[in-house]
Write a protein that binds this DNA or RNA. Structure first.
Ligand SMILES: [Mn+2]
Ligand SMILES: [Mn+2]
Ligand SMILES: [Mn+2]
Ligand SMILES: [Mn+2]
Lengths: 219, 219
DNA sequence: TAAAAAATTTAGACAAATCTAAAAATTTGT
DNA sequence: ACAAATTTTTAGATTTGTCTAAATTTTTTA
């Protein structure tokens, strides 16, 4: 498999996990930042290799083999991200781009040894679950901060948007994974939240709240 | 730069360091396991990018920029090899192929952090020197075991051939870098050597002796 | 339900990296 | 010195991955 093919497979997997079952040529083109005609070409290639189901004008979806492949690439991506943060001291907003390259390194043994070195982590630095060696994938059933009712207490467990801009915004406001937060008030006008975090009150926009995954703590 | 361009640059560097100044199209084709016509094409591309001096029928050599580029790739290759052995527990015969992939990862910061994690090693697992961050390259002036006179005592410091077959042969015979060896006898018939290594006498063929770098110990 | 709009595919082109076969230049040997 | 051998380049083709522009199919809408 080429890097390009792997990137398409990964993109299809991610789109499929946003709810959509059948992915349109245009949606995939947008995700891949390329042209629909290029997508059509690539879908034919991937289809011939048995990685996707594709019939023209009907959209595309991953085959069992395609899903297995996607999970293996995502596993590598996320393990490398953990390595970069835990062993090399990178910050969580720096690792994605480098992992985009490292995820294409081909060596089963390498990734197993890396997993071991990192002590078999279950989540990457952004709170995303790391697929297992045999393709086990734990979809996290987390809620978004924006979905919690007033008075809730919750642990921050992940980010939905893991762009560097958003991550640096969180750093600036001392919001990190593992933090406990309590929702004090919801502003009707703009759906912003007033939360208590680290003994400190914080005003958070709807935009932010709907990009933070939390796990509710029952009191 | 593409992976392919980087691999050509590295190959030219390695050929240049076997003594030859001007590298022929055929020599490079053989090293790259490709056809001379492909080499001609690539030399034109690299020449246009200012990485090599190339005039047709005149052979090729690296420019200053080309040399700098080669050293940077070799630095990455060798640091990754150290990582694989020291941190992931790979054996020295397994690391070259994986490093061939990892050497193409683009991130200055990554390689600096890796260097730090490894405690700034000066040699890779095969005894080859690791170029510095600013292109400092220490050519090792080691002798080959086959060149030493009888009675010499020397430290084994590197391998000339670092193919997996040769490395596994050394493992099988418990010959490792850092070992002290004394030359007891030289067989006139086939130039094989009888050496003392780890309290053990060992018969070594000329083939083997001429692929082991040693550093003489003055008594 | 037919025209308009949107989505998708096809056709044709291009750059990178490779190949084979043929032509041209250089080197070697007598 | 010149023919033969060798090396190197050129010409033309192929694959991958991309693009633009045009054609086709599907969906929407009036
Ligand atoms: Mn990532
Ligand atoms: Mn990628
Ligand atoms: Mn190597
Ligand atoms: Mn390489």
């Amino acid at each position: 498999m080429t890097h390009s093919e792997e990137n398409y497979i990964k993109a299809i997997f991610h789109l499929a996990n946003t709810g959509i079952e059948v992915i349109s040529t245009n949606a995939l083109a947008e995700k891949m930042e390329t042209k629909p005609s290029s997508v059509t070409d690539m879908m034919r290639r991937l289809s011939k290799k048995g990685l996707v189901h594709y019939k023209k004008y009907q959209g595309v979806s991953l085959t069992t083999l395609g899903t297995k492949t996607a999970l293996s690439i995502i596993r590598k991506h996320r393990l490398w991200e953990v390595f970069l943060v835990e062993k090399l001291g990178f910050t969580w907003d720096e690792v994605h781009e480098i992992a985009e390259q490292l995820e294409h390194i081909k060596s089963e043994k390498l990734i197993d040894k890396l997993d071991e070195l990192l002590d078999f982590p279950k989540f990457d630095p952004h709170g995303d679950p790391i697929p297992g060696k045999n393709g086990e994938f734990m979809e996290h059933d987390n809620q978004l901060l924006s979905q919690l009712p007033i008075g809730s207490v919750a642990l921050c467990v992940g980010v939905k948007d893991s762009s560097a801009v958003f991550l640096r915004f969180l750093d600036k406001n001392s919001i990190a994974l593992g933090n406990k937060m309590k929702i004090i008030e919801k502003e009707e006008f703009d759906n912003s939240l007033r939360i208590l975090l680290n003994e400190r009150e914080l005003q958070i926009s709807q935009q932010i709240a709907s990009n933070l995954y939390v796990k509710k703590i029952e009191l």
